[in-house]
């Protein structure tokens, strides 16, 4: 289980990094935190000829809040987000999701941008981005562009990023105004495993107690993370009750297409996703009511 040979480049700037991708084309692969790519290289399931390591590109390691938006450089480590104490109350969805990623040593190395660009359909970051209607910036030979969450994920391990584009920044709108609650719940076989199914949700309540906004992002249940738009519509305008959540869950499981694997059949994942939708909504509603 030793990686195949590759040429290694450690650019110091984005400009240099993009130049390397243009130069090497499909032969090159971007190395961010390496927590998914390197295991694949160890199994020789990935055998890039060229690795472009972003570890030395300082401009990708920033994080700040701009108004109501959390801005994260692509090389922000999961651990750095987990350590943002204030975020735990402001938007628990993010921290709870991040805490479900692997284990401490994985979170110390793994990056936000790497996780989004890798686009594992069972990963947490894509669901966080989707649930919060976030967007990412990418830079390529033709300059910068912004990609909305809804347009980023295409299918298994495939995004809208071109091979010579680098994801540079992630922007996550944080809740404001109306009382809002969020939660990230998942079922994994062991602590830290990829989810059998998972749900990130955020709901906002009208002063009269009805739901004015609801987001549901599901993972592990399709070829990409899924926003359950019909279930969200079924929630809006209703009170946060058990019956309403159950109805939303049954709508949501019609919006997903889980595949079967060792850790759960398609039917099982669909069922578990429904259970988790209900549980996530219940937690988020409780938090919204307390907000």
């Amino acid at each position: 289980m030793k990686p195949a040979p590759f040429s290694y480049f450690a650019p110091r700037s984005l400009h240099e990094a993009v130049g390397l991708l243009v130069e090497h084309g499909d032969a090159a692969k971007v190395l961010a935190g390496g927590q998914s790519l390197v295991p694949m290289m160890a199994f020789r399931l990935a055998m890039p000829d060229v690795l472009v390591d972003l570890g030395g590109v300082g401009e990708l390691e920033h994080s700040r809040v701009e108004g109501d938006t959390l801005v994260l450089g692509a090389m922000t480590r999961h651990r750095a987000v987990q350590d943002m104490g204030w975020l735990r109350t402001r938007c628990p969805l993010i921290v709870e999701g991040v805490e479900l990623i692997g284990h401490p040593a994985i979170r110390n190395r793994g990056t936000v941008g790497g996780s989004l660009a890798h686009a594992d359909p069972a990963a947490e970051w894509p669901a966080i981005l989707l649930a919060l209607d976030g967007e990412v910036d990418a830079v390529g030979p033709n300059g910068n562009r912004t990609i909305r969450a809804a347009d980023l994920f295409q299918t298994y391990f495939t995004t809208a990023l071109a091979p010579d584009e680098i994801l540079t920044e992630v922007r996550l709108p944080l809740p404001d105004g109306a009382p809002t609650g969020s939660a990230f719940v998942e079922m994994a076989r062991r602590h830290g495993d990829f989810a059998v199914a998972g749900v990130g949700t955020q709901i906002s309540l009208h002063p009269n107690g009805t739901i004015v906004d609801a987001r549901l992002a599901l993972i592990g249940v399709a070829d990409r993370p899924v926003r359950a738009g019909s279930a969200e519509a079924a929630l809006r305008g209703h009170g946060p009750t058990e019956e309403v959540f159950a109805e939303a869950a049954s709508v949501a499981i019609g919006e997903i297409e889980p595949s079967s694997d060792l850790h759960g059949s398609s039917d099982y994942r669909r069922h578990v996703a429904g259970v988790l939708v209900r549980r996530a909504l219940t937690i988020a509603a409780r938090r919204a009511a307390a907000a």
Partner: peptide, 27 residues
């Protein structure tokens, strides 16, 4: 395991744990 799952290769880098099987020495 050499695929980042068992933790036997855990070392500290700048005070934080990392899997030394998931990091190239050059890095």
């Amino acid at each position: 395991c050499e695929h980042g799952a068992c933790g036997a290769c855990t070392v500290l880098m700048d005070g934080r744990t990392v899997r030394s099987c998931l990091l190239f020495a050059v890095q």
